[in-house]
Computed example of a mutant assay.
Amino acid sequence: MKPFEINIPQEDVDDLHRRLDQTRWPVDPEGAGWAQGTPQPRLKALVEQWRNFDWRAKERELNEIPQFVTTIDGTPLHFLHVKSPNPNARPLVLTHGWPTTCFAFQDMIKPLTNDFHLVIPSVPGFGFPGPTTSLGWTIPRVAKMVAELMQRLNYDKYLAHGYDFGAMLTRHLGMNENVEAIHVNQIFSAGVTQETADMTVEAERLSVEKAFRYEYEQFGYVSMQSTRPQSVAHALTDSPVAQLEWIEWAFHTWSDPEIGVPVDQLLTTASIYWFTRTAGSSARYYQEGDETWGELEPMSDTPTSVAVFPHDVGVAIRRMAERNHKIVRWTEMPRGGHFAALEVPELMAEELREAFLL
């Protein structure tokens, strides 16, 4: 287990600037909007901001967070490890999803370290220390790596939280006897269809509507990443604008329109994916694990808390979640969307404190 420091070569920073300066723009049809992808005026403004983004200042900022790397399952695993000054603090694993990185929790670290020792792993192939170079990467495999990491850190009992991909990973991690309780923002198997919904209940009607919209209006990225992840890899590794757009579309589409993901977080995330060349390795999880996502998982007796955000991509229904989870807390959040750690970090931190400490 070794300390890790971000140090992107200057030639990589210069290359990014050169590519941004030489962007070859397509012709947008008149009236093109978000249904076609990120509108070009929005993307051009973001590219200009990225060109002027002070990566070195951001790098110094991120390096203030204690970072480490260790090898598990023959693969380097990067993680943040922030210990609490509180002698009664409890260990807490935070796991991110796509298309973000471990630094999605950056603004939650300070409010949480009063009560928790934080372990925040980078899912292998998402950002640091770089792309995975073999096939076979699935949610259960990564969950085993995180469990091993917690053993190496001498945390015999701990808590876990995750969103998106990290919510599914947290659910698998929670099957480990060392995990005392979990908290997730999504349970993807807890949605309803027109056949299973009680359409007299507003939340269930909304669950059906959002599922329909996701499948027929927003599913393109899943189709690409689950069938041709290397096509995605070639495009996004060669074009920084493509990488930026790929992330911005998701951030815009699934976040609270009154809040959104801060531009600084967007540019940080895009920079990390770009410099580490992890567009393809993060996309491959959709191909190698996609067939089980959203299916009914085995029963879990781990105490499970759920936060449902009003602008999330889907709506989980408690009665459906209770089929195979021990639900102990179900919170309808007042604002926020799919990327709550980025959109409403203080609200998300307080929700975790209340779920795990009260």
Rank of each mutant, 00 (worst) to 15 (best):
H161Y: 14
G294I: 05
E297A: 13
R318S: 05
K2W: 02
T278D: 13
N86S: 14
V47P: 09
P240N: 05
G166Y: 10
E177N: 14
S189A: 14
A203N: 12
P229L: 06
H172K: 10
S231T: 15
S84V: 06
P129G: 10
R18N: 06
N86T: 08
R323Q: 15
E350G: 02
I182F: 03
A211T: 14
C102V: 06
G162A: 06
V179R: 01
G31H: 11
S281L: 05
P334L: 09
V184F: 06
L149F: 10
R90V: 11
I6T: 06
F275W: 12
S84L: 03
V93K: 02
M175A: 15
L16N: 02
K144G: 10
N114K: 13
E217T: 13
N154C: 06
T237C: 12
I72P: 08
W274A: 01
D107P: 00
G127W: 01
L173Y: 05
P41L: 04
V47W: 01
V82R: 10
D54G: 01
T23R: 02
I247E: 01
Q10D: 15
P39A: 02
L135S: 12
R24P: 00
I327D: 09
K110S: 13
K83H: 11
G220A: 15
A340I: 11
A197W: 03
D156S: 13
V192M: 12
R152F: 06
D14S: 11
A147N: 14
H234P: 00
P41G: 08
W34E: 13
M333W: 06
G130K: 00
G174L: 08
R228N: 12
T133R: 15
S255V: 07
G127V: 03
Q67Y: 13
A316P: 01
Q225G: 01
A341V: 04
Y214G: 00
P9C: 09
Q40K: 08
L43Y: 02
F275A: 01
C102P: 00
T268V: 03
V261F: 06
Q10H: 13
P87W: 10
W254C: 02
R152P: 02
P262N: 04
P124E: 14
Q186E: 13
D73V: 00
V313W: 03
K110Y: 10
E245W: 00
G74T: 08
N88H: 15
F309A: 07
V27D: 15
R51K: 12
E59P: 09
M175T: 14
R329I: 00
F103K: 08
P39H: 04
N63V: 07
T75R: 03
A270Q: 10
Q49C: 04
H17E: 11
A242H: 10
T253W: 07
T95V: 15
L80P: 09
P29M: 11
Y163R: 01
D14T: 09
N324A: 12
R277T: 06
W137S: 04
T170D: 08
T71Q: 13
S255C: 07
N154H: 15
G260N: 05
N63P: 12
E177C: 00
E288T: 07
T170P: 11
E59K: 07
K83C: 02
R60K: 14
T193W: 08
F356N: 12
A233G: 12
